[in-house]
């Protein structure tokens, strides 16, 4: 195989480069051509994929959302006057509680309109990130697992560790109930429910179930999310204009 390749490159040195570029494109993206858009985008898109990485760096084969890259990006979005809104796309299994809460707090305190869309899964610490936005969407087939927080690895075996964990859980519950329509009792019911998950406690809410429980605002896809975001951006701009007239 390698001999054949070597022969080929010797014969046609000019054609080798575009052909290999094409091969790489097919391997990585499954297609050769991607559509082109106009250059100025007033909506930025934040993708929360794979595991949410905390202080411990995961091996490179893991797909991760790195908070040290995301947080400066949120700061840049806040500062750039050309950016008018943010769309947050979630497909995450969860991960580090503190990193997840950090991203959630950053999104919740962003002055620009934000819309989140849960596709596939927004599990565990993905839940606070999904509810942190001004309006949240969930795809009909997407799921969210709500479960008590837990720790793997080495812990110091003292009663204070348990207390610390309990307080950490309280922070997650407080954040979710503050930023969504779900009540604390309902959320805790889902969190500690028995019999829903095999050999575990918690609940797996799917699409419309998340909406009926008040956790997510509506069921929809990317089209719905974009039109809602444009609506929020328009309302935000009108507010700014009105303020200008008063002053």
């Amino acid at each position: 195989m390698s001999n054949y390749k070597a022969e080929n490159t010797e014969e046609q040195p000019k054609e080798d480069k575009p052909a290999s570029g094409l091969m790489e494109k097919i391997q990585q993206l499954g297609q050769t051509n991607v559509p082109q858009l106009s250059q100025d985008s007033k909506i930025h898109c934040l993708t929360i994929v794979g595991q949410i990485e905390g202080h411990l760096q995961l091996p490179p084969q893991n797909k991760t959302t790195k908070y040290e890259h995301l947080i400066p990006q949120i700061v840049a979005i806040e500062q750039n006057p050309k950016i008018e809104g943010v769309l947050v796309i979630l497909n995450t299994v969860g991960g580090d509680v503190e990193a997840g809460l950090a991203i959630s707090e950053m999104l919740a305190s962003l002055s620009k309109p934000t819309v989140s869309l849960v596709l596939g899964g927004g599990h565990s610490i993905g839940v606070p990130i999904a509810v942190s936005c001004d309006h949240s969407f969930i795809a009909e087939t997407a799921t969210m697992t709500i479960h008590p927080i837990r720790l793997t690895g080495l812990v110091i075996g003292v009663p204070q560790t348990f207390e610390y964990l309990d307080k950490m859980q309280e922070r997650v519950v407080k954040f979710v109930t503050k930023h969504s329509k779900i009540t604390e009792d309902d959320f805790k019911d889902l969190m500690f429910a028995k019999g829903n998950l095999t050999r575990d406690i918690g609940t797996n809410v799917i699409g419309s179930d998340a909406v009926t429980s008040g956790l997510i605002d509506s069921v929809g896809g990317v089209g719905d999310a974009m039109s809602k975001l444009n609506e929020l951006i328009e309302a935000n701009n009108n507010n700014k204009e009105n303020e200008g007239i008063i002053q």
């Binding site: 494109k25 990585q28 991607v34 858009l37 930025h44 898109c45």
Partner: peptide
């Protein structure tokens, strides 16, 4: 890793 959707359409930096 960008948040600008246009960067994902930028031909020279397509994954791969």
């Amino acid at each position: 890793l960008s948040t600008d959707p246009n960067h994902y359409l930028h031909e020279p930096i397509q994954p791969g």
